[in-house]
Structures are given as C-alpha cells and as structure tokens.
Simulated assay, not measured.
Amino acid sequence: MRIQADREACIGAGNCVLAAEDVFDQDDDAVVLVLQEEPSADQVGEVRNAVAQCPSGALKLVDD
C-alpha cells in the first residue's frame, strides 16, 4: 500500500498530521508532506483515518 498526496488539492487543514503524525507533516505553507510513502502495518489504521478525514480529498491509498 502506498500513499498519494495531491499537494495542489490540499487546503492545509492538518487533519492528516493529527491522525498520523509519523506519516504526514506540513510545509511552511501548510501543504501536506508525506513522510512515509509506504506505511508500516501498524500505521495502516491511522493512515486510513487520515485519508478519510481529509476535507479536500487530497490523500489516497493505492494498493501496489
């Protein structure tokens, strides 16, 4: 599983960072940064939650 982030669609709400701070961060403009493109098995629940909470739909999980 891989995380894709559409930085153009990101509105900087920060929900992803709150849900999975080890996987997501924000740059100086509050745009999402993916710290781990392939989350570990113990992070999958948090990542799914972050994707679901993204108000702009900028995050997506892709099965490899």
Rank of each mutant, 00 (worst) to 15 (best):
D42S: 10
D6M: 06
D25C: 09
Q43G: 05
G45N: 12
E37F: 02
V23E: 04
N49K: 14
P55N: 05
A19L: 07
V23K: 10
A13Y: 08
D42I: 08
L61F: 04
D6L: 08
R7L: 01
Q26E: 13
E21V: 14
S40Q: 03
E37A: 12
I11M: 07
E21M: 13
R48C: 10
C10T: 06
L35T: 14
C10L: 01
I11Y: 00
Q43I: 11
S40D: 02
G14K: 13
Q26G: 10
R48K: 10
L33P: 03
G12Q: 07
G45P: 02
A52Y: 05
G45S: 12
V34P: 06
V23M: 13
A5D: 05
A58K: 05
R48L: 14
G14W: 07
A13G: 14
P39H: 03
D28S: 15
V31C: 05
A20C: 04
G12W: 10
G14H: 08
N49E: 14
Q36A: 11
V51L: 02
V62A: 00
L59Q: 01
P55H: 07
V23R: 11
D22W: 05
D25E: 14
V51E: 00
G14R: 07
V32S: 05
V34T: 07
V32Y: 10
L61K: 03
S40Y: 00
D63T: 15
A58M: 02
V62N: 00
A58L: 00
G12H: 09
K60C: 14
D63C: 07
